[in-house]
Design a protein around this nucleic acid. Structure first.
Length: 631
RNA sequence: GCGCCCGUAGCUCAGGGGAUAGAGCGUCUGACUACGAAUCAGAAGGCCGUAGGUUCAAAUCCUACCGGGCGCACCA
């Protein structure tokens, strides 16, 4: 993925420039900036940082890498930022940084600052069917989306966060059907919230569908009336959706997740977006009405003309073409999504109507009012689980088909693997478990899954009983951070097999460990002399203690990590970094006296602590995890 | 059948061309009348799924195979 995020000044950018200049001085030609790579040294004996330019320049310069490394080392040793430079191994140049220069550098900011980038990014996430309580899988989506939005804002992008409300779908129709037609008694009472009750209704309904054909017919009829609109079912469903939505938004708010705009699927029709999109699509030869075959009567988006397999497949079992308008005239989800995306990119001459909710959140609706400019993005990012990558591709293809190549290029799908349940957790929830089977997918239709509110309560309870002090932030806030951290520290492509015991664990690579480290560091600053605690810089010793070095190297690399995470749309990069910084700080804390040290050492170490607190708070904020001063 | 993703310590996961592959959990052994022990140290644990290839250099890139997951709806 290519996003133009400018790199702020950092140790690595500074060193790259200096290495480039040194190469130019020595060999009378400037190197390609991309071949200059500077990394933290793999092992402490190698120094602070390492570059492999000599090996990468060996071929273009026609000289042995070791010779280049030797010459480069001698040249760089003159640099005031570099305390020592040595050629090593097959052609590395190992550098020790003049940390005093780094810390004192004039005009140096405590945290990297990014200039505003111009343009707008829309991030769509959460987008849960509004028909029952939200579960951990939905929360993974929301945490990823929320963190990506924070990352982009942090690096200078203008971001608008959308939550898409599918208020017309099969799932809403099903729960409404269950509420209306299921025998009272089939669902247990005593649920704490409406969405919890509906969770059970939805599961009970699907059980009913198995045994009761007339119930299925009622479900189909409900869906039909819902889609048709302007009738008893449609109005009831609207009230129903609103209530469920409030429950879901409250769940998300407890994790610090907020939105700028709620977009209702029904409003895409109401605002006439589809009508306009439809006429645009008709300009494409790939959008056709099938007259025969299995898709007769449907408007479909044809697979790419140059796709040789497509024609062949059309005769086989799988149709390569995507139906947008069904033979009964009703639209598929993808059709409405295409219209929505044309609007997101500002490619339709129409807008929604809106209303402003009490909590300051805008929602599409029926009123006309003054509102900030919404939509019209240059870049669109959709956080949707990777099982749905096919319809996402169809949206992209539709944009291409109607000639919006640039928009198609700037539409990014962040696909992530799903959350399943461990055998232990599944058994705990009453799911029948089998020998030799370790992974149990969540299934709304069977009522299998961990609801967000339940998980939060469970983890909060574990935190409450494990904590030794009760000051500072509350157990629920810690639990929320623990869960967010857990969901974000896994790579997007990693299947999370959720085990409630390991989420509730507060040791190791966990949110509480990282939060605790922040509180610990903040506590030291609190006890220090206020002037010394505020200082961002202090004279550094010529040679650092090994654990001072490790902390300093991590701190120096924070801007690079931030840029890498934002460019890759990947919050896991931040989690990995923050954990490593926490480990290094804790080791530094064990090995090096701070408040008890002599004047010079104390001031330098306090400046390091000050920076650790700032960087950890910065990173934790991007993850949506609290950075408490006490806990 | 076609396509995508994943196989790394007993378990959960990092590392995604660079020097001797890292954490956490679990196991064993140690460190608090405290700069916050929700911490830290040490020990033990690996043909990085298999076989080829590219490269000065492969856990990392390419090919094939094996194993697991997921897509290929007039559901979303």
């Amino acid at each position: 993925m290519s996003m133009s995020i400018s790199s702020p000044v950092s140790l690595s950018t500074l060193l790259k420039a200096r290495i480039g200049a040194a190469v130019e001085t020595l060999f009378a030609q400037p190197p390609d900036p991309n071949v200059i790579v500077v990394e933290p040294a793999a092992r402490p004996e190698f120094g602070d940082v390492t570059t492999n330019v000599a090996m990468r320049l060996a071929r273009p310069l026609g000289r042995p890498p070791r010779d280049i490394a030797e010459a480069l080392s001698q040249q760089l040793a003159q640099d005031p930022w570099i305390r020592r430079a040595d050629a090593a191994g097959p052609g590395y140049v190992n550098l020790d940084i003049a940390w005093d220069v780094w810390m004192q550098a004039e005009g140096r900011e405590l945290l990297p600052i990014f200039p505003p980038q111009g343009g707008k990014v829309i991030v769509e996430h959460t987008s849960i069917n509004p028909n029952k309580a939200a579960h951990v899988g939905h929360l993974r989506n929301a945490c990823i989306g929320d963190s990506v939005a924070r990352l982009l804002r942090r690096t200078g992008q203008l971001v608008e966060v959308h939550n898409y409300i599918d208020d017309l779908g099969r799932q809403v129709a099903d729960t409404v059907t269950g509420l209306l037609y299921l025998d009272p008694g089939t669902v247990a009472t005593g649920q704490p919230r409406f969405c919890d009750f509906c969770w059970d209704v939805y599961a009970a309904l699907h059980q009913g569908y198995q045994s009761n054909p007339s119930l299925k017919a009622q479900g189909d009829q409900t869906l039909h009336e819902l889609e048709a609109g302007d009738n008893r079912i449609a109005w009831m469903a609207e009230a129903f959706v609103q209530q469920i939505l409030e429950d879901q938004l409250r769940d998300m708010a407890r994790f610090g997740i907020r939105y700028d705009l709620l977009v209702h699927e029904s409003d895409i029709l109401r605002a006439g977006l589809w009508e306009t999109a439809f006429s645009r699509l008709q300009g494409s030869s790939r959008f056709v009405r099938e007259t025969d075959g299995p898709q007769a009567g449907c408007w479909v988006l044809r697979a790419r003309e140059d796709d040789e397999d497509a024609a062949e497949e059309r005769d086989g079992a799988h149709m390569p073409d995507k139906v947008l308008v069904r033979s009964n005239g009703l639209l598929t989800y993808t059709a409405k999504d295409i219209a929505y995306h044309l609007w997101k990119f500002g490619l339709l001459p129409l807008d929604f109507r809106y209303h402003l909710r009490g909590d300051g959140l805008y929602s599409t609706g029926r009123e006309i009012l003054e509102h900030p400019a919404l939509g019209g993005a240059n870049t669109v990012i959709n956080v949707i689980d990777r099982r749905q990558s096919y319809p996402q591709e169809m949206v992209q293809e539709a944009l291409q088909a109607v000639g919006f190549e640039e928009a198609a290029r700037n539409l990014h799908h962040i696909g992530y693997a799903v959350v399943s349940l461990s055998r232990r957790t599944a058994a705990h929830l009453g799911v029948p478990v089998e020998e030799g089977r370790d992974v149990y997918p969540m299934a709304g239709r069977q009522g299998i899954g961990i609801k967000i509110a339940d998980l939060l309560a469970l983890v909060a309870e574990a935190v409450e009983s494990a904590r030794s002090r009760k000051e500072g932030i509350g157990s629920e806030a810690i639990a929320s951070g623990a869960i967010r951290y857990y969901l974000l520290r896994h790579n997007l492509q990693t299947d999370i097999v959720l085990d409630t015991d390991s989420v509730a664990d507060i040791h190791g690579n966990t949110g509480p460990y990282v939060m605790y480290t922040h509180a610990r560091a903040a506590g030291i600053l609190r006890r220090a002399d206020p002037t010394e605690a505020e200082a961002v810089a202090a004279p550094a010793p010529a040679i650092l203690d090994p654990w001072e070095r490790m902390v300093a190297i991590s701190l120096a690399w924070w801007p690079d990590v931030l840029v890498e995470a934002a460019r890759a749309y990947n919050p896991t990069v931040i989690a990995t970094y923050v954990h490593e910084l926490a480990e290094r700080f804790n080791r530094f804390y064990e090995e090096c006296p701070i408040l008890r040290a002599g004047d010079t050492e104390r001031r330098f170490r306090l400046a390091l602590v000050r920076r650790v607190v700032a960087v950890m708070a910065d990173g934790l904020d991007l993850l949506g995890v609290p950075a408490p001063d006490a806990m």
